[in-house]
């Protein structure tokens, strides 16, 4: 497709090793067969978004206009009101606890 929104001047590389590292950081197992297409697609996406790097030079960061929304920190539900419904969704549980494998 032709579209000037795509910056074709820079060619971007995301290596297969980098993809593996990112997937590991994000805790996602990727099959070997997906690595090459991901490397290409991520390269072209990062290539496109890189156009912002040269265009934000003189902008000074200001604190955004945000408003603090405060409320009293009080319990609004009765004890155990949601426990059963929430635990019903757990793949593995024991009494009122979620079960995970030991990490130590």
């Amino acid at each position: 497709m032709t579209n000037t929104f795509r910056n074709v001047n820079i060619s971007f590389m995301v290596t297969i090793e980098e993809i593996k590292n990112l997937a590991n950081l994000a805790r996602i197992e990727l099959p070997e067969s997906e690595l090459e297409s991901l490397s290409k697609e991520m390269g072209s996406i990062l290539d496109y978004v890189s156009q912002i790097q040269n265009s934000a030079g003189d902008i000074k960061r200001v604190v955004p206009e945000l408003h603090n929304i405060m409320r009293e920190d009080v319990v609004t539900n009765t004890p155990g009101q949601y426990t059963e419904d929430i635990l019903k969704n757990a793949p593995k549980k024991e009494k009122d606890y979620l079960v995970v494998k030991k990490i130590l």
Binding site: V14, E18, I19, L22, A23, L25, A26, R27, I28, E29, L30, P31, E34, L38, E41, M42, I45, L46, V100, K101, K102, I103
Partner: peptide, 26 residues
């Protein structure tokens, strides 16, 4: 536990979702 995470996310998320998580992580 780490393998549980890796396998669950690997099997549960579709291609575009994985792609965007990786870009975000990058």
């Amino acid at each position: 536990l780490l393998e549980d995470y890796l396998k669950t996310k690997g099997a549960g998320f579709g291609k575009e979702t994985k792609r965007r998580i990786l870009i975000g992580t990058y």
